[in-house]
């Protein structure tokens, strides 16, 4: 497990294994905070005297909000690496962009799904077309689904990398709209405004949300690291196979005397 040269070849390294263990521990801690230590969101309405709030559904936000922030991070990284690729034209940038976009899309999908599951009890709807953030997030997700579809084509890797970079850069235009929508359409949209921006949160709730950010950042880092290595291996495997094939043909040629037959000297 901790031996880097173990017989099973993996994308793991001592660092990534340590990160993975820390992430698992963090996830357990987050679960305890979110489900045991924090209170449900209940308060007394000042004039009606009734209990109002999200009740226990608030525990979904310790999952939903950090994943949304990680989606921003992942897609920003994908766009940044895409720009880097267009400038530097090295595989490192391309593999990074691809990895970040793929992991980001997993997170973006989960943001949409968990948001929907939260919205049913709290808003009374699975999906609301009258919410700007929902619409812009869905568009963002679909654009990156298109990006991943483009990456699965059997094109020349460099052509594909260049075009994917352009798609990612156009898609990222939507990101500030997603992020700022709740402010720009403040009283025009269903989504609540940023809680952290106005610091309308405190104590254990705030702490749990912060732990959520940290833990999901670790989840993202771990996935990104491994996904990057898979992308890197894909490139290396392609090159290695070509190299091995050439070596093989050459061996055949030497063996059967083809080299001399075609007049080559070595």
């Amino acid at each position: 497990m901790t031996n880097p040269t173990s017989s099973v070849a993996t994308t793991g390294s001592p660092g990534s294994r340590a990160l993975g263990l820390a992430t698992l521990a963090g996830l357990v801690g987050l679960l305890v905070l979110a489900f045991v230590l924090t209170e449900p969101d209940v308060r007394i309405h000042p004039s009606t005297g009734q209990e109002i709030g999200q009740f226990d559904a608030v525990r979904l936000l310790y999952l939903h909000v950090p994943m949304a922030v990680i989606t921003y991070v992942a897609y920003s990284l994908a766009a940044f690496a895409s720009a880097g690729y267009l400038i530097k034209r090295t595989p490192w940038w391309d593999v990074t962009a691809h990895a970040a976009a793929e992991v980001g899309t997993v997170f973006c999908f989960l943001v949409l799904v968990t948001g929907s599951i939260w919205g049913r009890p709290v808003w009374n709807t699975w999906w609301e077309w009258g919410d700007v953030r929902l619409m812009t997030t869905l568009i963002l997700f679909l654009m990156f689904v298109g990006y991943l579809a483009l990456r699965r084509t059997a094109a020349d890797p460099r052509v594909q990398a260049r075009r994917a970079a352009v798609v990612a850069l156009v898609a990222i235009v939507d990101l500030p709209l997603v992020n700022r929508s709740v402010e720009w359409w403040e009283n025009r949209t269903l989504h609540q405004k940023s809680t952290l921006g106005e610091l309308k949160i405190e104590d254990l709730t705030l702490f749990t949300l912060m732990v959520g950010f940290l833990v999901f950042l670790m989840v993202f880092s771990w996935l990104l690291l491994h996904r990057f290595r898979v992308g890197w291996l894909t490139l290396a495997a392609g090159e290695h196979q070509v190299a091995a094939a050439i070596k093989e043909r050459r061996a055949e040629a030497d063996g059967s005397g083809v080299a001399s037959a075609v007049g080559e000297t070595s």
């Binding site: 654009m143 689904v145 298109g146 579809a149 084509t153 094109a155 052509v159 075009r163």
Partner: peptide, 23 residues
């Protein structure tokens, strides 16, 4: 132009283009 020459233009173009045209 992005989808051309990839051999799967007919299926790739809609999924790339339509989300961008949603606004």
């Amino acid at each position: 132009a992005l989808a051309s020459g990839l051999g799967v233009r007919e299926t790739l173009l809609p999924i790339l283009l339509l989300p961008v045209l949603a606004p």
